[in-house]
Amino acid sequence: MTIKTVKEAINDALVQSFEEDKNVILMGEDIAGGKGREQYQGTQDAWGGPFGVTQGLYTKFGGERVRDTTIAEAGFFGAAIGAAMTGLRPIVELMYVDFAGVCFDQMMNQAAKVRYMFGGKQKVPMVVRTVVGAGFRAGSEHSQTLYSLYTHIPGLKVVAPYDAYDAKGLLLSSIKDDDPVIFMEHKRLYMTSCEVPDDLKPIPLGKGRIRREGSDVTIIAIQRMNLFAEEAANELEKINISCEIVDPRTYSPLDEELIFQSVKKTGKVIVVDESNPKCSLASEITSLISEKCFSDLKAAVIKITAPHTPVPFSPPMEDFYIPSTKKIIDAVKKLKDV
């Protein structure tokens, strides 16, 4: 057993995938960084992306497989699709998910649809690694989560790991998967760590995880919200309220069974999502529960989400924007009394 940060776990999964399959390649902006100055010793691999996640890959695997691109997302996302259809397994980095707009067509209309639209003859085994999340004081254009933007599109798979264990296991399977996968990494989780076995097997996409067993209330937490759910559960335990925390981990496909089992057990549900509320994962999960578990519910599902605003910059406003431990505790108390 080794303790790894999310950042290290992702790097490990990339290295392992590169070693296992020579068709795996990586493209993105400054994923090596400084490569242009090969005459200067030690500068070739200076960046590894803005969070240093891919550092070392260029040195290990070379510029043919680890490609620094220009700021041309539509170009290299499109290229990943063609490369994937013809035999490579490209991983592309969308530096922040907020830049989705400049290359959304490639994912929405090509990557997602070629298999279906062209009669099921092709597949597009590519992975988009991207950085999501507020709480970094990074303002409206570098802080969104946009989970539901991709989840909405048939043909795309969507993965959002919370801890290092899941990050490694889920990235390994995302790269092996034959469909296009959007792999979302939360910037506030990169430096969090947990035990990750060196020989961790790929974790199947579409399998959620019970992070904490409990009997009174179910908290369904999306990515970083697991942190607040855990904090809330710890507090609530002190006053004898038992929370069950469900981390779906992947959003398309979604482990509906796991969610429903927990709902049946507690009958009281809170969904916590850092995204904007309209047409969000929170609203999707809530609607599924009301459709499939109506008779098990003892109260209406409570959604805790960001407000319907862009992410504000200033700390008091951004902290207000992000769901909090306190909001979860209050909601659980409200449900407990039902």
Partner: peptide
Amino acid sequence: GRGGSMHISDFSKGMLGSFGIVA
């Protein structure tokens, strides 16, 4: 306080915006 360093802009001074998305 909504924009921050990356989005300093004042329309009344002829600034249409400071955009964080390249190009």
